[in-house]
């Protein structure tokens, strides 16, 4: 089978699953599910995880994993809040604070990349350490308290809409399309897949492994940083526990989206569908009044099934 056909095949399956879920939920909720309000709400709720998952997709394609994304989400939001809150000592302009928040996020990403490439620390361990470390910074700098009093314009972003679609959702859609383009049409994307599928062959093809890995980890950090700001506008505050556990949803989205944890395989579109599927489950469960703990069980089972199904299809092809 053609590989782009194959990829499209996996993505088509996800689309079908999503469609089936939507039809079922529409009937089961007597139309409530597909109300415009609910749909825009669903997309808005997916958007923050969706943005984090874009970065996670890159790292998983390299064959690594990034457990620090949730903490970076918290860091970025907190840096912004500390720098702009009208109750603090520093009161910067919003745009300068955004740049600094993203800068800090990128820096953490770079540190991950250096630990993985230069330090030869396995990505799981390096980013696990970073997850704890960064969360510590967030807690310490805020003394574990919420920081509110953020600029008006920043807070309003979370309720702003364009063409009836929330600005947060637009942010996600725009970033996803942009990264999908970058992965398909630029050296950056080609190098990513090359390094992820065979690092030695990539090196012998003249690809600089180190500088590329740094770029990917920095990008992942940046996307988490953006997600942190998105969370900040929704919470209208810097939250010390903000982003906690986000790495799990992000990983789940990427895996459901068809990426392989051994690297070389994965797509932004697949990940976006994965994020939507997870959120649709939550949203549907909510509307149907399913116990949230039961929902957790279901989502866990679906992650395992997604990977199992993928392996099963692969096995059948060889046999």
């Amino acid at each position: 089978m053609k590989s782009n056909q194959r990829k499209a095949f996996a993505e088509r399956n996800l689309l079908i699953i999503l469609a089936v879920m939507a039809v079922y939920l529409t009937i089961a909720t007597k139309g409530n599910f597909s109300s415009w309000d609910n749909i825009t709400n669903l997309i808005r709720q997916s958007s923050i995880n969706g943005v984090v998952a874009i970065g996670m997709t890159l790292i998983i394609i390299t064959g690594g994993i990034d457990l620090s994304v949730g903490s970076i989400v918290g860091l970025s939001g907190m840096v912004y809040a500390l720098l702009t809150s009208n109750r603090g000592d520093i009161q910067m302009t919003s745009s300068l604070a955004i740049i600094l928040a993203l800068g800090a996020s990128a820096l953490i990403g770079l540190a991950n990349g250096v630990a993985v490439h230069k330090g030869k620390v396995p990505p799981f361990i390096a980013t696990l350490g970073m997850m704890t470390l960064v969360r510590g910074i967030v807690m310490y700098s805020s003394s574990g308290r919420m920081i509110s009093g953020l600029p008006m314009g920043f807070r309003e972003f979370s309720v702003a809409t364009m063409l009836g679609i929330p600005a947060l959702a637009w942010t996600w859609i725009f970033l996803a399309i942009f990264m999908a383009f970058v992965l398909k049409y630029t050296m950056y994307g080609r190098n990513l897949y090359a390094i992820g599928s065979n690092i030695e062959a990539a090196r012998l093809s003249g690809i600089n492994i180190g500088s590329n890995l740094y770029k990917f980890y920095v990008t992942a950090g940046l996307f988490s940083g953006i997600a942190g700001l998105m969370l900040g506008t929704r919470m209208a505050a810097g939250v010390p526990t903000g982003g906690q556990g986000y790495e799990l949803d992000a990983i789940a989205s990427v895996v459901i989206g068809g990426a392989s944890l051994s690297g070389g395989v994965g797509s932004i579109f697949g990940t976006a569908l994965g994020a939507l599927i997870i959120q649709t489950l939550r949203n549907g469960g909510n509307l149907l009044g399913v116990d949230p703990f039961i929902m957790q069980i279901i989502i866990g089972a679906i992650i395992i099934l997604a990977v199992f199904f993928d392996q099963y299809l692969k096995g059948r092809k060889a046999g």
């Binding site: 065979n198 062959a201 990539a202 003249g206």
Partner: peptide, 29 residues
């Protein structure tokens, strides 16, 4: 096999791995 191929990628990807400069314009493939 181990030092040359990007096994999960397609043939186009593999052949062009070191030849992208010839098929890129302004950084776009």
């Amino acid at each position: 096999r181990n030092q040359g191929t990007f096994a999960q990628q397609d043939i186009e990807f593999n052949v062009n791995a070191i030849n992208l400069d010839k098929v890129m314009k302004a950084g776009i493939l």
